[in-house]
């Protein structure tokens, strides 16, 4: 037998082995089914969350119905409006909805101009060598846990606002009624919540704005520049105009984050179920009241009220996020891939 022939003999062993392997149809099927199960588990989880929230908030839902979100009670002693009295079983989400809206709105008011400014700087003006580090820094800003923002806010931001910013606001804008710290000189309150939320949602808005801005084709910029436009005119007409829907999507996504943000806001908003015109007053937010009271809630009714607030938060954030996703998709879909 020649060498070549013996080699062929051995390879036939390989062939025999492979023939013995079967068609693994069963393994393939099993694998496929497993992957589908993993994917379906995501539906199951979202479904379970919704189901449990609905079930666990039945007590307050059946007692108050939709009134839960707009009813006002009256304090029998002082005659003042009152919203939240766990001891007497009176629950209304009004002050928390108000606090969430006010603090989120403040956050957007502060964060949007800064985020868009940052995005414009990073995509259109920044020297290449600075772009990477700055983008990385904003990414880090997004990675800092909420509780650390809260910690920093309690020990740095609150004293800063209390000692320097708030007095200035009271002096200059106190006449408007929005800045009145006479009831609450602690430095906590809606404004502090809004500022810390602004810092937290800034990176989201900024990075999405950057993404849609880079998705604007270069030809758009060149077309405007070719007409003799200055850089700002180019950015305004060539870039921002084309990217505006995506930027709005980014802002709404930031809003979604602000609405559900918990720890930092719990630590600085003051946690009182009250409504005030003054931004320097204490208040509450939907997420904060849950974090603050849930473990101490003793009555089923109290827990149910808090879970109903959670359910409302769940539904609102789903709507807000879905809307934002649609807008962002509409812009980035079909755009040329980013050049790094």
């Amino acid at each position: 037998m020649s060498l070549a022939e013996s080699a062929r003999e051995e390879q036939s062993a390989v062939r025999r082995f492979l023939l013995s392997r079967g068609n693994s149809a069963f393994a393939d099927r099993t694998f496929h089914v497993l992957m589908v199960v993993c994917a379906l588990s995501i539906f199951a989880i979202v479904g379970l969350i919704a189901w449990r929230l609905v079930v666990s908030s039945q007590i307050t839902w059946s007692k108050f119905g939709f009134h839960f979100f707009y009813q006002t009670f009256t304090d029998s002693v002082t005659g003042q409006p009152m919203y939240w009295d766990p001891v007497n079983g009176l629950f209304s989400a009004v002050p928390f909805v108000y606090g969430t809206l006010v603090s989120s709105f403040l956050a957007l008011l502060i964060a949007v101009p800064l985020a868009v400014g940052l995005a414009v700087f990073l995509t259109e003006m920044c020297p290449r060598s600075l772009r990477g580090p700055l983008a990385f820094l904003t990414e880090l800003l997004a990675a800092i846990p909420s509780v650390i923002y809260g910690l920093w806010a309690v020990f740095v931001l609150v004293p800063l606002l209390r000692e320097y910013v708030n007095p200035l606001l009271v002096k200059t804008l106190g006449w408007s009624g929005f800045f009145d710290d006479s009831m609450n000189p602690t430095g906590l309150g809606f404004l502090t919540g809004g500022v810390i939320l602004a810092i937290m949602i800034l990176p989201i808005i900024s990075s999405l704005t950057r993404e849609v801005m880079t998705a604007v084709p270069h030809s758009q910029r060149e077309a405007v520049l070719a007409l003799g436009a200055t850089r700002w005119e180019m950015i305004r007409m060539g870039v921002l105009r084309n990217a505006r829907i995506g930027i709005v999507g980014g802002i709404i996504l930031g809003l979604g984050r602000a609405l559900g943000e918990t720890m930092a806001i719990t630590m600085v908003i003051g946690n009182t179920p009250e409504i005030h015109k003054s931004l320097l007053a204490n208040g509450g937010s939907m997420a904060a009241v849950i974090a603050n009271e849930f473990t101490e809630a003793v009555s089923d009714m109290h827990r149910s009220a808090l879970i109903e607030i959670g359910l409302a938060l769940f539904i609102v954030t789903i709507i807000v996020n879905a809307f934002a996703q649609l807008l962002v998709w509409a812009v980035t879909r079909g755009a040329p891939s980013q050049v790094h």
Binding site: G256, L259, A287, L311, L313
Partner: peptide, 25 residues
Amino acid sequence: NAVRFTADVLNGVPSIVMGLAIYSL
């Protein structure tokens, strides 16, 4: 597409709500 959308929804669920849901579950 439905899975992708649901994953994005799950990503947007506030963490405090996740805590409530697991508490309740």
